[in-house]
Every structure is written in C-alpha cells, then in structure tokens.
Computed example of a mutant assay.
Amino acid sequence: MNRTGKIAIVLAIVGLAAGSAWKYLQDRSAEQALRGIASGNGRIEATEIDIAARTAGRLSDVLVKEGDFVEVGQILARMDIEQLTAEKREAEAQLSRARIGIDTARSFVTQREAEKEAAAAAVAQNEVELQSARKRLARSEQLSRSGSVSEQVLDDDRARVDTSVATVAAARARLAATDAAIGSARSQVIDAEASVEAAQATIARIEADLRDCELKAPRSGRIQYLVARPGEVVAAGGRVLNMLDIGDVYMTFFLPTAEAGRTAIGSEARIVLDAAPQYVIPARISFVSDIAQFTPKTVETEEERQKLMFRLRAQVPRELLQKYVAQVKTGLPGRTYVKIDSNAAWPAALAQPLTP
C-alpha cells in the first residue's frame, strides 16, 4: 500500500471516530435536556358519538355530509313521521271523546242529585202523611171505644197507616237508590277523567317520538361517516351516522412502570405530531390506567416488573381546539412528552407551545 492510501485510511478512521463522538454528545445532550420528562408514542383520538334512531322506522332525510362541522342541537337527519302523525290524530280523537265523556258523566251526576232531592222530598211528604194517618187512627180508636165510629172506619184508618208506612219505606229505598246512582255517576266521571289523562299521556308520548324523529347533534363536532341513507329502514337503536366531538381530543400513549408511577393526573404535557413537528401542542394528563398492559398476568421477578406498561391520556385544551377546529384530525401519529418531575424545565424545542 502506498503512502497516499494509508493517509486516506487514517483520515476515514478519524472521521468515523469524530462522527461517533458527535453522535454520543448529541444523545447525551438530548438526554440531559429531557431529564425529568418522559415520552411515549401515540395517535390523536377524539370521542366518537353514534347518532341513532330511538324507535324503528324509515329514514326520511339526511341533512349533513361526511366532514361537515355541526353545532349542538343542529338537526342532522329526520325519520319518516307518517305513522306517528296518524297515531297522534287517533289519540287526539280519543281525547275529545274522553272529554265529552266527562261532560256526559257530570250531567248524570247532576241528574242523579236532582233525583235524590226529589226522593228526599217524597220521603218527607210520605212521613207527613204517615204522621197524619197515625193521628187520625188515634182519634178513630178513641171514638170507637165510645161507639161514635164504626169498625169499618177504624179498619180504614188502620189500613191507611199501614199504607203510609209502606209508602215511606219505599220512598226511603228510592232515596238510598239515588245515593248509589250518584256514586256510580261520580265513578263514571273519574273514569272519564282517567281516560282524558291516558289520552293526554299517549299524545305526549307520540309528540316525544315525533321530536326524536329529528336526530340532533348532542354536541358540537364533525360528522365522521354516514351509516344509513334516506329510504332505508332503521331498527330501534340503529345507528344513522357517527360524529366526533372535536372538543374532546387527546392522545393515548404508554409509559413503563417507573415513569407512569411518577406521573400525576393534571401533569403538564406536550404533543408533537409527525405530520407537523414544527408545532408543539400543549396538553394535560387526564387519565392514568391502574392496570398494566403488555405483560404476563403474574409478575414474578423485578426484571419482569420493569416491563410493565401503563396507558395514559394527554388531553388537549378545549379552548385551543376551538381556535384550530378546522385543523383537528384524528388518527395522526405523534409523541407525547410529560413532566414526571414538576421542577423540570422544558427543552427549547418544547418550550413554546401553541396558545388558544
């Protein structure tokens, strides 16, 4: 080998050593910068909401498209209401009939009360006639002892008293019958009023079903995909569309035991997406699982315990999401950094997050 070749080999070795040293210094620098900070890979997720039909029926119309932003309370789809409208008309007719039944039953009560008053007057009149007949009989008996009246007159007066007693008894029976009739008429009023309440409850139920036929957004968000199309028959509880609550966005990631154990709920975090590494997204730890994953069911040794991984969730502030609502996308991969030491300082690359 000539002198020039030897020099080239030496220079290559020196360059390789210098590169290794530089990489080692960089790694050491990054390690020092992230002291007190843990990190894990994950993907952006959001709460999914299924919009479903409460009752079975035919889907009449879908008012949104996939990707549309919707506000809370906005009508997203409508179910066919022809059958419910017919049922409501039927219930309204039953309500009218029940109200007429109340008026009829009340008129019966008034009629029976009038009959009672007439029966009471008849009882009073018959009792007066009975009293008069008894007085006449008493006089006839006195005169009969002196021979002033015949036995025929005495017998007639006795018969008149017996007749009056029977008449009073019959009048009192009619009075008691009118009391029973009044009770029956009043029970008919109660029954008619119950029919009115039942018809009103039926109408209220149908109106609730009619309101439920308008499928509304329970929260503000974005339509993710449509499950059913207009004209399709949907079962009770059948999904019509799916939406994302873009005010509830987070990244799920995993940390080993030592780091997860030092992470508190509410800890400050940073999210960096692979698609936009120049932006740092602020977040807070909203969940730390109490169950380890990716490990054997029974952990026997300390070495195995070091392999335990716990699931965490870094929640993005709602105020920031509202500002960048058009840029919110789920499924994007990235990395979450979290302070496991509250006194640790963010490195320069993570020190300037986005602000609401």
Results as ranks from 00 to 15, higher is better:
N2I: 05
I7S: 10
A8W: 12
I9H: 15
V10A: 15
L16W: 13
W22N: 11
Y24M: 03
S29P: 08
E31Q: 14
S39T: 14
I44E: 00
A46K: 03
D50S: 13
I51T: 02
V62G: 02
D68K: 05
G73V: 04
Q74I: 01
A77F: 02
R78P: 09
M79Q: 11
R89V: 12
E92N: 12
Q94A: 10
A98N: 04
R99D: 04
I100E: 14
I100S: 12
G101F: 09
R112V: 04
A114C: 02
E115V: 06
E115N: 07
A119Y: 08
A120T: 02
Q125F: 10
Q125P: 02
E127P: 02
L130E: 12
L130H: 11
A138L: 11
S140Y: 13
Q142F: 14
Q142C: 09
V149W: 05
V153P: 09
D157E: 07
D162E: 10
S164I: 03
V168H: 05
V168R: 06
R172W: 08
A173R: 11
T178C: 06
V189M: 01
E193Q: 08
A201G: 08
E207K: 12
R211F: 12
R211K: 14
D212G: 10
L215I: 10
K216F: 08
P218K: 09
R219V: 05
R222V: 03
I223C: 03
Y225P: 02
L226I: 00
L226P: 00
G231R: 12
E232A: 06
V234I: 06
V234C: 03
A235T: 07
A236Q: 06
V240H: 03
G247R: 04
M251C: 02
F254M: 11
T263L: 03
A264C: 04
G266L: 08
S267R: 08
E268Y: 10
L273M: 00
A276K: 05
V280S: 00
I281M: 00
S286F: 06
V288P: 10
A292P: 07
Q293G: 11
T298Q: 08
T298W: 11
T301Y: 07
T301W: 05
E302R: 15
E303S: 14
L308A: 05
L308F: 07
Q315L: 03
V316K: 02
R318S: 07
R318F: 09
L320P: 05
K323A: 07
V325F: 13
T330S: 03
L332V: 02
L332F: 01
Y337E: 06
Y337Q: 08
I340W: 15
A345G: 14
